[in-house]
């Protein structure tokens, strides 16, 4: 067991590095061979050089994007949780409200984003709302499914101890939902930065979204791609952070999974 986990770990780090390196090599080769201009397809080395030269600008624009992402995501967590509690109250409520939530997720962002800007201006608010709008759904769904995964025997046990619904929620249903919640959280967080950038693209005075748009309009494809790389990096960092939070808040899960694998 321990031997394979060690190899797994190395493969887990080495694998993506090798794949990304291969993509970059092919891209570099094609960009130089094809004769396409840097405004159409800049080589990775050029993206890196120009991105590095523009790092102060990129950084200055990454900050507002990150701010909108984090505040929006905090709002999403709050709304997602409150909705999950509402949906957990009864089957009737779940069946009536869930379709509405699903419909919200089918609305095209291309329409929603400009409307948000129209209604709430060019400041932080529309961006925060859009991030929350895009990310609350996986959080709500994962929590609701997590509540439902609570052990029936454990619920009977708590009732026999004299526990009411609130107690059962707090002591059983909510903790049961945590592994599901973190799975949903990771799906949600991968949409968050993109949503913030989308909102900025629709109208903003600062941020990676508007930076990309300006770079594109002046045919600086290399800088567009550099900004894309920064946004990918932000997402990766936030994604990794969910694992840190998971390990801190539910330390038992890792041990539990390990115990399930090798009893």
């Amino acid at each position: 067991m321990t031997r394979t986990t060690a190899t797994d770990k190395v493969a887990g780090i080495l694998g993506p590095v090798v794949v990304i390196a291969m993509i970059l090599i092919v891209w570099q080769w094609y960009a130089t061979q094809s004769g396409l201009g840097a405004d159409v397809l800049p080589s990775p080395s050029r993206v890196w050089e120009q991105g590095w030269a523009a790092r102060a600008d990129l950084w200055a624009n990454a900050i507002p994007t990150l701010r909108a992402t984090l505040i929006g995501f905090a709002l999403s967590l709050l709304v997602g949780f409150l909705l999950s509690v509402l949906l957990d109250t009864s089957n009737i409520v779940r069946r009536s409200v869930m379709p509405v939530l699903v419909v919200t997720q089918t609305l095209p962002l291309i329409v929603i984003a400009p409307l948000m800007i129209l209604w709430f201006g060019f400041e932080l608010l529309p961006k925060v709302l859009l991030v929350a709008f895009v990310t609350f759904f996986p959080i709500t769904v994962s929590l609701v499914e997590g509540y439902a995964s609570a052990d029936r025997d454990a619920e009977t046990l708590l009732r026999s101890m004299g526990a009411g619904s609130a107690r059962i929620f707090r002591s059983l249903r909510f903790p049961s939902a945590m592994p599901y919640f973190f799975a949903g959280l990771r799906i949600a967080i991968t949409y968050a930065v993109v949503a913030a950038i989308f909102a900025e693209y629709a109208g903003a005075s600062e941020g990676l979204g508007i930076y990309m748009q300006l770079a594109k309009n002046s045919f600086r494809t290399d800088l567009v791609l550099a900004a894309v790389a920064v946004s990918a990096l932000l997402t990766l960092i936030l994604f990794g952070f969910t694992y840190v939070v998971e390990r801190l808040t539910i330390p038992w899960l890792r041990l539990y999974r390990r115990a399930q694998v090798s009893p």
């Binding site: 025997d153 454990a154 046990l157 026999s160 101890m161 038992w252 539990y256």
Partner: peptide
């Protein structure tokens, strides 16, 4: 009377967390 019985379920139902 309400609270006179203490129950041990068929599966142990110990909470893993």
């Amino acid at each position: 009377s309400g609270d006179h019985l203490a129950f041990m379920p068929q599966k142990d139902a110990l909470f893993p967390w």
